[in-house]
Design a protein around this nucleic acid. Structure first.
Length: 201
DNA sequence: CAAACGATTTTCT
DNA sequence: GAAAATCGTTTGG
C-alpha cells in the first residue's frame, strides 16, 4: 500500500527516517516503473539543525518546499551535478525533511542501468543520494510533487526490518554543521551492500 | 551585481 | 587515497 499522508505528517522526523527503511520508493517516469527498497536515510530536523537548509527557519525560494506539509518531495541540486531526493515531513510551516541516500533496486533495473550508463548491476547503481536519484529518474523539476501516487510514491510492501538490523550513525558530508554533525540522524540497514559508504571512502 | 560554497560522484594516480 | 568537475543558491557589497 502507498504510505498515507498521516505517515509523513507526524512530528518525530528521526522516527520516520528509521521507519522508512525497508519501504519501497517507486517512480513512474517515461512510462516506466522503477523502484527500490530504501536502505539508507538521513533526518534533517529543520530550524534546530545546523545541517539543514532550513536552519533557523531560513526561508528562500529553494527551501520553500520544505515548509509544505509532510508527504511532499523536495529535490535539490548539489555541486551543480547531483540531484538529492528528500521527503518532507511534519506539518505545514515546519521544515523537516528526510534525505533518502540509497535504495536496493527492485523493478525497472534495465531502465536504471540505462539512465546510469551502466551495463551490469552493481551496488554503485543506487548507493548514494545522487546516484539513486539518477537511477530513478528523479529531477529537480519534480520538487514539490506529492508522494500520494504516481509518478512518485513510497509503498509499504510488508517488509519488516528488525531493530537489530538498523544502524544509527552520523550524517555524511555535513561537517560544517559543527555539533549538529554529531547527531545520530543517519540510519541504514546493516550489511546491505547497497548502503552508500559516504564520500566513496 | 559579484563571489563563495556545497546533504557528491567519478576518475586518475 | 586524493583531487577535480561544475552550477544553482546564498550572502555580501
Amino acid at each position: 500500500m502507498i504510505l498515507p499522508e498521516s505517515f509523513y505528517t507526524r512530528k518525530d522526523v528521526v522516527k520516520i527516517a528509521k521507519e522508512l527503511l525497508g519501504k519501497v520508493l517507486v517512480t513512474e517516469f517515461d512510462n516506466v516503473r522503477t523502484s527500490g527498497m530504501i536502505v539508507e536515510t538521513e533526518a534533517y530536523a529543520g530550524p534546530a539543525d545546523k545541517a539543514s537548509h532550513a536552519y533557523g527557519n531560513r526561508r528562500t525560494n529553494r527551501t520553500e518546499v520544505m515548509y509544505k506539509k509532510g508527504g511532499t518531495a523536495y529535490v535539490y541540486l548539489c555541486y551543480g551535478i547531483h540531484h538529492l531526493f528528500n521527503v518532507v515531513t511534519n506539518a505545514t510551516d515546519v521544515p523537516h525533511a528526510i534525505l533518502l541516500r540509497a535504495v536496493e533496486p527492485l523493478e525497472g533495473i534495465e531502465t536504471m542501468l540505462l539512465r546510469r550508463n551502466k551495463v551490469k548491476l552493481q551496488p554503485s547503481l543506487t548507493a548514494g543520494p545522487g546516484a539513486m536519484s539518477m537511477a530513478l529518474g528523479i529531477h529537480t523539476t519534480d520538487s514539490g510533487l506529492s508522494l500520494q501516487g504516481p509518478p512518485m510514491y513510497i509503498e509499504d510492501r510488508g517488509i519488516k526490518i528488525s531493530n537489530k538490523d538498523i544502524v544509527a550513525a552520523t550524517r555524511v558530508g555535513v561537517a560544517y554543521a559543527a555539533d549538529d554533525a554529531l547527531r545520530p540522524y543517519r540510519f541504514y540497514i546493516k550489511d546491505n551492500p547497497y548502503v552508500s559508504k559516504g564520500r566513496g571512502l
